[in-house]
Amino acid sequence: MRVTDREVETWLREDVGHRDVTNHVPGETTGRLVAKEAGVAAGLDAATAVFDYLDVDASAVVDAGDRIEPGDPVLAVEGPAESVLRGERVAVNVAGHASGVATATRRAVEAAREVDDDVAIAATRKTTPGLRGVEKRAVAAGGGDTHRLTLSGMVMVKDNHVAEMGLEAAVRHFREEKSFTAKLEVEVESPEDGVRAADAGADIVLFDNMTPDEVREGVELLPDGVLAEASGGIGIADVSDYAATGVDVISMGALTHSAPSLDLSFRTGG
Rank of each mutant, 00 (worst) to 15 (best):
T181I: 14
T146L: 10
A169S: 07
D159T: 07
G194M: 00
I204C: 09
E168N: 06
A200V: 03
K158W: 04
G142H: 13
G201P: 07
A198S: 04
T245H: 04
V162K: 00
E176P: 03
Y242P: 11
S152M: 04
A237N: 11
F174H: 06
V162N: 02
A228C: 08
D203L: 15
V195R: 11
T245M: 05
G153K: 04
F207M: 01
L227C: 06
I204M: 13
M210E: 00
K158G: 07
E217Y: 05
H147F: 10
V205L: 00
E185W: 01
M210W: 01
F180W: 15
E229V: 04
M210L: 09
G166L: 07
D193N: 14
A228F: 02
E220C: 08
E168F: 14
A169D: 11
L151Q: 10
E176Y: 13
E185L: 01
V226E: 02
Y242R: 07
N209G: 12
E168H: 08
L227Q: 14
K183P: 06
V215N: 06
E189R: 12
G144W: 02
L167I: 11
D193T: 05
M156D: 03
S231Y: 06
G201W: 01
S152T: 07
R148D: 09
V162T: 12
E187V: 01
V162Q: 04
A230Y: 07
V247D: 06
M210G: 00
P212F: 02
E189D: 12
N160L: 07
S190H: 09
A243P: 03
S152D: 10
E214S: 04
E185K: 01
G233E: 15
A182P: 15
D199Q: 15
M210H: 00
V247C: 08
D238R: 08
A141N: 14
E168I: 06
V247N: 02
G246E: 11
H173L: 06
L151F: 05
L149I: 01
G235M: 08
R196C: 08
L222A: 10
L221Q: 04
I236A: 05
A237K: 07
D159C: 03
E164R: 12
S231I: 12
L206G: 00
V162M: 03
R216S: 14
G218N: 01
A197K: 00
K158Q: 06
A202H: 02
V162F: 00
G142D: 08
A237R: 14
A170K: 06
G166Y: 02
D241S: 15
